[in-house]
Each structure stands twice: as structure tokens, then as C-alpha cells.
């Protein structure tokens, strides 16, 4: 679905030839794929937006495709950089004053009788 479009990264981002090649060689991402991704992202798109995003996503993903040339055989994935593992804190209830609680609940757009109101789910 994604047209491979290997373009060498230009570190200074200023190589016009590479940028032109990137733009002209890239096929669009399939519109159905954009709609599927929009659905996963819980946003709705106008038809004109679908076309627009397809083009832009294709360009970005084609650029990202250069990662396929990297040999990652021996590389473990990095999830985080701290090296910290299993961080715990005391399992204590923290006193949360009523006025602070009220402030928290005040941020909910629809709130009635101590409940967050949403449309019928089941």
C-alpha cells in the first residue's frame, strides 16, 4: 500500500534535489487506509481532508522508509532511557481535600449527581 520511496536523509534538510525527488516519486497512500487510520484515531475527516492527509502521510512515511536500510539485527528496542525498573512508591491513600476534588470534577463537561454523563453505551 505504501510506495517505497527511498530518499537519503539530508542532514541539513536543505538539499532541494532530494526534496523534489521525495515529492515527485511518492505515490499517495490509499484513501481507504487514511479512513481506517482516522477511524482508529477517533476523528472524522471531510473528503477533501482525506485526500490531503493521504498525500502528506505518504510523504512522511516515504521519508520514514529510509529506516528499512538500517541493520537492526543486533539492536534491542529502546522503550525508555532511564534504566529504571520496577519503580514503586508507598501504597498510601493521599488526602485529597473536598475543594480540590470539586475542582477536578469541575473540568468534566457533563457531570450530574456525582456521575460523569455520557451517551448510552450498552
Amino acid at each position: 500500500m505504501v510506495e517505497r520511496c527511498p530518499v537519503k536523509a539530508d542532514v541539513a534538510g536543505s538539499n532541494p534535489a532530494a526534496r523534489a525527488k521525495l515529492k515527485s516519486n511518492c505515490m499517495l497512500i490509499d484513501k481507504d487506509l487514511v479512513k481506517k487510520v482516522a477511524d482508529l484515531s477517533k476523528v472524522t475527516l471531510e473528503d477533501s481532508e482525506v485526500e490531503h492527509f493521504a498525500k502528506e502521510m505518504a510523504e512522511v512515511l516515504s521519508y520514514a522508509d529510509q529506516l528499512s536500510e538500517v541493520d537492526v539485527t543486533d539492536a534491542a528496542p529502546t522503550d525508555q532511557v532511564t534504566g529504571l525498573l520496577s519503580v514503586f512508591r508507598e501504597d498510601l491513600a493521599i488526602d485529597y481535600p473536598a475543594d480540590k476534588r470539586a475542582k477536578l470534577l469541575n473540568t468534566v463537561p457533563k457531570f450530574e449527581n456525582g456521575y460523569v454523563v455520557v451517551p448510552k453505551v450498552i
Partner: peptide, 29 residues
């Protein structure tokens, strides 16, 4: 919208290995 959609794509079934997971490995390098 663009970033959320790009991210949903990179994490979606069928693409996660080629995009998200590969990027995590390149991050290590």
C-alpha cells in the same frame, strides 16, 4: 490530526514492526 493519525498508523496491526518497532531499534543505535 496528522500526528495522531501517523502514530495510529505506525502502531497499527501490519505496520507496527516495520515502523514503530524498527524506529525503537534505530533509537538504540
Amino acid at each position: 490530526k496528522r500526528r495522531v493519525m501517523l502514530g495510529s498508523f505506525a502502531l497499527s496491526s501490519g505496520y507496527i514492526d516495520a515502523y514503530y518497532k524498527r524506529a525503537q531499534k534505530v533509537r538504540t543505535l
